[in-house]
Amino acid sequence: MEAFKKLTGPILVLEQENIDTDQIIPARFLTATDFDGIGDHLFADWRLDADGNPVPGHVLNEARARRSQILVAGHNFGCGSSREHAPHALLGFGFRVVISSQIADIFRNNSQNVGLLPVVLEADQHARLLEMDGEEICVDLEQCEVSVRDADGSEQSWPFSIDPFARHCLLRGLDRFDFLNQAEDAIVAYEKNL
């Protein structure tokens, strides 16, 4: 997993609420037995027509979409299935951060496991970002802060909270498995009593 400390760049806004995992990566792309190239199928049914050609005018088909590493999505992002293909598709497309005012449990967990940073902001902050498509912001995991610049140039920072262990692993690019592995003695002890 690639470490994540701090990222400054333009945001891409998908205003839709309740974006579910079937939109992020439709089921027909789940038959692969690895995650290679899965980013090409991100939001396939929104981005591409029945023949696989880009739908003209869709924000995800703009040149900036592939360059943007920060996705800002409507309330309750990532609901639905447990497919880890969803965060892998977002990473494969080029995103490193997804911001919303609510992020579904399993999706959030999966994201943290594969190196995509999920950020949940307050409703009013989130609403501000939804109005800022294409503008630059800074996401700082060390400070747990999202910073935006006002029209007059002054900076505003909003704190966000994240599971401390997920933060620890993301900052260092650590595989959580190693932590689980260190619990071996405790696991052996537990299994003795089964």
């Binding site: 299935s81 447990s82 497919r83 880890e84 399993i106 967990n109 999966n110 496991n113 594969v114 959580r176 498995f177 689980l180 592995n181 619990a183 071996e184 696991i187 299994e191």
Partner: peptide, 15 residues
């Protein structure tokens, strides 16, 4: 429900 990474964790450690 769990993700695929965690499927690997459970296969390996049952935890």
């Amino acid at each position: 429900g769990i993700g695929t990474t965690e499927v690997g964790h459970v296969l390996a450690k049952q935890c």
